[in-house]
Computed example of a mutant assay.
Amino acid sequence: MEVHGTCKNGFEGVRDAFIQNFEEGLEVGAAAAVTVDGESVVDIWAGDADPNGTPWERDTIVNVYSTTKTMAATCMLALADRSELDFDAPVAQYWPEFAQHGKESVLVKHVMSHTAGLPGFVPPVTAAQIYDVDAIAAQLAGQELWWEPGTQSGYHALTQGNLEGEILYRITGTRMAEWFQREIADPLGADFHMSLPASEDARVAELIPPAVNPTTADSPVAELVINDVAISMDSIAGRTLTSAMLDATEPQTREWRAAEIPAAGGIGNARSIARIHSMLACGGEVDGVRIMSEAGARRGLEVQIDNLDQVLMTHMRHGIGFARELDGWVTSPNENTMFWGGWGGSVAIVDFDARASISYVMNRMDDQLTGDQRNQRISAAAYAALG
């Protein structure tokens, strides 16, 4: 197994952690990246892009599931920084049809912090339905709340992205995938896509599904185990995770890749994720490209709730579009750090104190929804190097 790419002096520990994951049989193909002050200090990749042995190349990209949420959140932070969006405003101020069944009280910041009370779809939806963003928006507008907004968090696994995407669309008249490409990815030269052109399909690594898939609605089990907690299928967690009938093979389809799925459909690599987040970590500007003010970037740090998340069944502090703390996932020595990750193991960390970003992507999916040991090793090694 050969590791490709670059690793600056002092950051060899990140490469060692990356290699250890392969040596222990935990990887098929993967990539990791670290930036400091906007400079790339780690940009490495290795392994195979699929089970057939196709090499993972420098420009290989892969579906990163909920790490996509960090890109959607970056769009919303930028929009707020331009005074086009108010996180304290009701969602219905921008999306009048949303004000049904008591949802007049749902604020944009509730959507951003998984406290809006709409963690799943009622009734459950199929992949084909998810691809129709207008129909999904209409369904969410017509749904009833699962709890009083702002009183507790329950991970909005897919719905958060659709809610954010519709808010952005109502403000700008542009779909989030296009807005992200034009306003965030292209200016930063980042190879990350919320809607992937067919011309790029040959570069996409094949995800290898985990042994356990909690999102399959026709599961024969009576309960699921989430972060070592047994939950019933009719609990908030059970209803949320089975409200979208998906499995990990869906991102191999052209329909998924072309669709706008701001909570789970993003396709990129570690380099592109670290590049975009280096902009945030450096106060909204990197290499002379300013996307937002430093105050605007730091709004993601604003803690909205500190509680036991009713879907992930673990203690969390949610900020604006990012987590500030989640038991057993990312540990940072610096207070002003925010992060999120994706089903299967990908992760993205933004550290304002170190002016650093850390990212990891892979194609062999782990069973855990949070706390993947591979990305923990890499982030720990990065922090050891950062001192």
Rank of each mutant, 00 (worst) to 15 (best):
V286K: 14
E335W: 14
Q139G: 01
W56L: 07
R324Q: 06
C75N: 09
W56I: 02
E255C: 09
F22R: 00
L312D: 08
R175W: 12
P251W: 08
D191S: 00
L207Q: 01
Y65L: 10
H193K: 00
L301F: 11
M71P: 07
T6C: 05
V106W: 08
D48W: 13
A380Y: 02
M313W: 15
T74W: 12
T68C: 04
I349W: 08
A263Q: 05
R299Q: 14
I261M: 14
S232P: 04
I358E: 01
E335S: 15
G102M: 15
A72C: 11
L301Q: 10
A99W: 09
R182C: 04
C7H: 00
R58S: 13
L312E: 03
E285Q: 14
S199A: 14
L386A: 11
H4P: 06
D186N: 09
A244T: 14
I320V: 11
A264P: 05
N213R: 05
C282S: 13
T370N: 07
Y131E: 11
E166K: 07
R203S: 02
E183L: 00
N9I: 00
W45Y: 11
D366K: 14
R290H: 04
L224P: 00
P220C: 03
P55V: 03
A202I: 01
S272H: 10
V125E: 09
D351W: 13
E23V: 02
A205D: 02
N336H: 14
S379L: 01
A295Y: 03
I349E: 07
R377F: 14
H114I: 09
K69F: 08
E166F: 03
V28Y: 10
L26F: 01
E255S: 11
D81Q: 10
W256M: 13
R170V: 00
D16F: 00
A382Y: 05
E285S: 12
Q100C: 09
G150T: 07
P333W: 08
N9D: 13
N269K: 06
L280D: 07
T67W: 01
M292K: 04
D309M: 13
H156Q: 06
T215A: 13
V122C: 09
E164M: 14
W147E: 09
L207A: 06
P124L: 09
A135H: 06
G341S: 05
Q139F: 00
P90Y: 13
F11Q: 01
V229H: 10
L163N: 09
R299H: 14
I267G: 09
L369Q: 12
P96K: 01
A73D: 05
A295W: 05
T126N: 15
Y155A: 03
S105V: 15
A356M: 15
E178K: 12
N9E: 13
N21Q: 06
V125I: 15
G47T: 00
D372E: 07
M233R: 15
D134Y: 06
H156F: 06
A248F: 11
T126L: 10
P333M: 09
N269C: 12
A46N: 06
G387R: 03
L118G: 08
A205F: 00
Q129S: 14
G265S: 15
M279E: 12
M76H: 08
R271N: 08
Q310D: 11
A205R: 00
V347Y: 05
Q181W: 07
